[in-house]
């Protein structure tokens, strides 16, 4: 590893955070996206709006509410302190949970679009061929929605890499625990270390471009576009 003159710890921490968040989020977003794609319930637009909130809210607002939610005197925060002996705020676990909320629409929306593109027809065909709902999901819906899954993984990973406001509010700036890439860049600028900021920023710029290029290339090949 060449010496770039900067501490690469935040890079690895960021990759670990984003990887974990992307995997867990795609798994957890699947049932929600499935429900949104298939339900005829009247509350659907309400749930869709709530899911999309992180897209429009300033990260500081989101971060503030997460901070309130995670505080040791709330049921969730209190439970966490009793169970683990440490607080959710200013911890890596807290950062994972906060990032999952923050990146939620980036997993749910491509999956929902993909499931809607698959539609009911192939699932009905699978059912008449003897496949139960779980079987039909795994053998027909999921493979047909594969590009939606790839898009959801890539986008939620990339969006988590790029987050700043929420991390600052919830995680702070603790080296090795919560000091991720974007915070580290901020730190370099604050301390007038422009060279370090430059190295990390350029890396992030190239990375982001590569990710988006990948998503749009995938979408061009996909019959039903996965990114809306």
């Amino acid at each position: 590893m060449p010496d770039l003159g900067v501490d690469l710890g935040p890079v690895w921490l960021t990759l670990k955070l984003a990887g974990l968040v992307a995997l867990m989020l795609v798994a957890l977003a699947t049932p929600l996206a499935w429900w949104l794609a298939h339900t005829r319930a009247r509350v659907r637009p309400v749930i869709e709006a709530i899911t999309a909130l992180p897209l429009v809210l300033p990260p500081t607002v989101l971060g503030f509410y997460i901070l309130v939610l995670f505080a040791p005197d709330t049921p969730l925060g209190g439970f966490w302190v009793r169970a683990t002996g440490s607080t959710l705020t200013f911890s890596f676990t807290g950062l994972v949970l906060a990032s999952m909320l923050y990146s939620l629409p980036f997993a749910v929306q491509p999956l929902q679009a993909a499931f809607e593109a698959v539609g009911r027809a192939p699932l009905e065909a699978a059912a008449t061929l003897g496949a139960g709902p779980r079987d039909a999901f795994l053998s027909v819906a999921a493979p047909m929605a594969l590009r939606g899954y790839l898009t959801a993984l890539v986008l939620s990973f990339a969006h988590t890499v790029g987050e700043f406001g929420v991390v600052l509010m919830v995680g702070g700036n603790i080296p090795g625990k919560t000091r991720v890439l974007s915070i580290a860049i901020y730190e370099h600028v604050e301390t007038l270390d422009y060279a370090g900021a430059q190295t990390l920023s350029a890396g992030l710029l190239v990375f982001s471009f590569a990710v988006l290029l990948m998503v749009y290339t995938l979408n061009r090949r996909a019959p039903g576009r996965a990114l809306r």
């Binding site: 027809a121 192939p122 009905e124």
Partner: peptide, 19 residues
Amino acid sequence: PPHRRGVGYVFQDARLFPH
């Protein structure tokens, strides 16, 4: 449910699995 009825169904639009 349909998968327990043992009916074969040929749809107007075939509905073959594209994958």
